[in-house]
């Protein structure tokens, strides 16, 4: 017969094993390998909160013969630490690069973790000035959204190198093509193309499920969409939404929304409708086909109006 003490110890051992297994599970399942050598972590389609630790964007990494490159570093230090542990459980090759697809906190608040792990941080040549100009307001807004504990752990870490047009990184028999875009989602969008598997990491130049967010130029985004579509990728990793989707079909709903936004705002401006009314109504139906439309559609319409009234 088992005495009480043994039962307690046994219960503890079972609980401890389960906890370890759970943690290991979490590490093992953080990234999934979408195609050989390409791993993606799917962020939640949501606004940043303390509960989700800023884990709302898709982040990934690519493994070459010699080295690893991570693409975006997550929305908090804790998310990045979890990502790093997950990578280390998969490969012990050095993490040579951490690539930032653009300036938004959900994509690069984990930079410091990868920099400490030895990675060189690479972004669009305009990323450093854009981040510098916004550091104060990001610190303030992220304190609100992530909560002080998670936000204060972040040291906003700018890129070590900027890309001005195109640059190829070699991970060892595995070229990654980095392309810097003109102003679109932001003024510092950068895409990463893995030639071997024809996988395109589009950053927030491609939104799926999550309403596209305009923080750059609507006209620039629409103008460059055909160039994006022309990239000979088989699949895309969008900045938000599913881990991967077929390319270029994946971008169609976004383009439909952006075109509707430009159309509605142009009509509103031409007819003398005010900004306040236009913000309420522009591309409302198209926005509602996405999640988080109530959070972003008025802001997008405001930005579009302020841009298009100078046409």
């Amino acid at each position: 017969m088992i005495n009480a003490w043994t039962a307690v110890v046994l219960a503890f051992v079972l609980w401890y094993d389960a906890a370890i297994a759970l943690a290991a599970d979490r590490v093992a399942s953080f990234y999934s390998e979408v195609v050989p050598g390409v791993f993606v972590h799917e962020g939640e389609v949501a606004e940043t909160s303390a509960a989700n630790r800023g884990d709302i964007a898709n982040i990934g990494f690519v493994v070459g013969d010699d080295a690893v490159a991570v693409i975006d570093t997550g929305g908090s230090v804790t998310e990045a630490q979890e990502a790093l542990a997950a990578i280390r459980a998969i490969t012990d090759k050095p993490i040579a690069y951490a690539i930032n697809t653009h300036m938004h906190p959900d994509h690069l608040f984990g930079n410091q973790v990868f920099k400490a792990a030895g990675a060189r941080i690479i972004g669009h040549e305009r990323l450093a000035p854009a981040l510098a100009a916004r550091a104060e307001s990001y610190r303030a807004s992220m304190r609100e959204q992530l909560g002080p504990e998670l936000a204060d752990a972040v040291t906003i870490t700018p890129p070590d190198e900027g890309v001005s047009a195109e640059r190829t990184l070699d991970l060892g028999n595995r070229p990654l093509v980095l392309k810097a875009w003109d102003t679109a989602h932001t003024d510092n969008d950068l895409t990463v193309f893995d030639e071997r598997t024809r996988t395109l990491f589009a950053g927030d130049l491609v939104f799926m499920k999550h309403l596209p967010v305009l923080d750059g130029s609507l006209l620039g985004w629409l103008r460059q969409t055909p160039m994006l579509e022309a990239i000979p990728a088989e699949r895309v990793v969008p900045g938000h939404g599913p881990a991967t989707a077929p390319w270029p079909d994946a971008i169609e709903p976004q383009t439909a929304y952006l075109e509707a936004l430009a159309r509605d705002v142009r009509v509103a401006i031409a007819s003398g409708q005010r900004l306040s009314e236009t913000a309420e109504t522009a591309a409302k139906a198209e926005a509602e086909a996405f999640e988080l439309s109530e959070d972003y559609r008025r802001r997008n319409a405001t930005a579009a109006y302020a841009e298009l009234e100078w046409e």
Binding site: E136, A140, S141, D187, S217, G220
Partner: peptide, 15 residues
């Protein structure tokens, strides 16, 4: 509303 003053002026500073 919050943060409008600290927000950087331009979405596209070059323009």
């Amino acid at each position: 509303a919050a943060g409008g003053c600290a927000a950087p002026a331009a979405k596209d500073p070059e323009v």
